[in-house]
């Protein structure tokens, strides 16, 4: 156990835990955007900034990947943090427009108006959630970053269609600014951003489309389940099989 102080509250945190986790367990709110329990911290969005005091010095760190240390004093809501957070969020909104998730965050952080010109380009904020979920959860490694600085963007390798993408849509689901479009029509699923088009598989029982061919093949390769189970949608599976 590691003893730390967050906002004046004495907390015993687990060894190796991050400041964010410790704060969340203690019921202290720290705004986050690029953090998700399903994937590793990435400290890209800078919303979770906190002030850490150690040996009489304070510094701003991202709490999502800062490990707890014995005796540190953490402040999550000083004037300095509030000011920095607001500017960061305003810049994010200026970049991509006011999406529902950013709006919610703006209320919590206290951004009332955006002082920058909102471009509303539906621009990616480069939080890396889609890349991480594809790498760490799906395991497909179908998309990644390209370039750096102003040219940095998320693309499939070489910006062409690839076989790794399962068209599972996890990236679209997790995107906090909803810029990854996903369309389903006539038995196909399309993710134009990744140049991906997949055929959907219909459930053998109810006839509803429920997964892409690539997803089925991936699950087959991983689990070796027979077709009678693979080609039945989760709803019907619950009715017909007891596992």
């Amino acid at each position: 156990m590691v003893k730390i102080t967050i906002d004046g509250k004495k907390i015993s945190a687990k060894e190796g835990e991050t400041v964010l986790k410790a704060a969340q367990r203690a019921g202290i709110f720290i705004p986050t955007l690029c953090n998700n329990d399903a994937v590793k911290p990435y400290s890209a969005c800078r919303m979770c900034l906190v002030e850490v005091a150690k040996n009489g010095r304070t510094k701003l760190v991202t709490s999502c990947d800062y490990p707890v240390e014995e005796g540190i004093e953490v402040n999550t809501n000083t004037e300095r943090i509030q000011r920095d957070r607001k500017v960061i969020l305003e810049l994010l909104i200026a970049r991509t427009g006011e999406t529902p998730e950013l709006k919610k965050l703006a209320e919590k952080v206290g951004v009332k108006e955006v002082r920058f010109k909102v471009r509303n380009f539906d621009d990616c904020i480069l939080c890396g959630l889609c890349v991480r979920v594809c790498d760490e959860v799906v395991g497909a490694h179908a998309i990644g970053f390209r370039g750096r600085g102003m040219e940095r963007e998320v693309v499939p390798p070489f910006d062409v269609e690839n076989e790794q993408c399962l068209a599972c849509g996890a990236c679209a689901e997790i995107c906090p600014v909803n810029i990854i479009d996903i369309f389903e029509h006539d038995g196909t699923r399309e993710l134009p951003k990744w140049h991906k088009k997949s055929r959907l598989v219909a459930c053998r029982v109810c006839g509803k489309y429920f997964a892409t061919e690539e997803e089925i093949e991936m699950i087959r390769a991983k689990t070796g389940l027979p077709d009678e189970i693979l080609y039945v949608c989760p709803d019907c599976r619950e009715h017909n099989f007891t596992i």
């Binding site: 790498d135 998309i143 990644g144 970053f145 390209r146 390798p157």
Partner: peptide, 21 residues
Amino acid sequence: IEEVSHQTEIPINRIYHIATF
């Protein structure tokens, strides 16, 4: 790049990231 990914078993998106960075 595809061959490097194949032989090192490093996903191609990582190598592409490095090569474009």
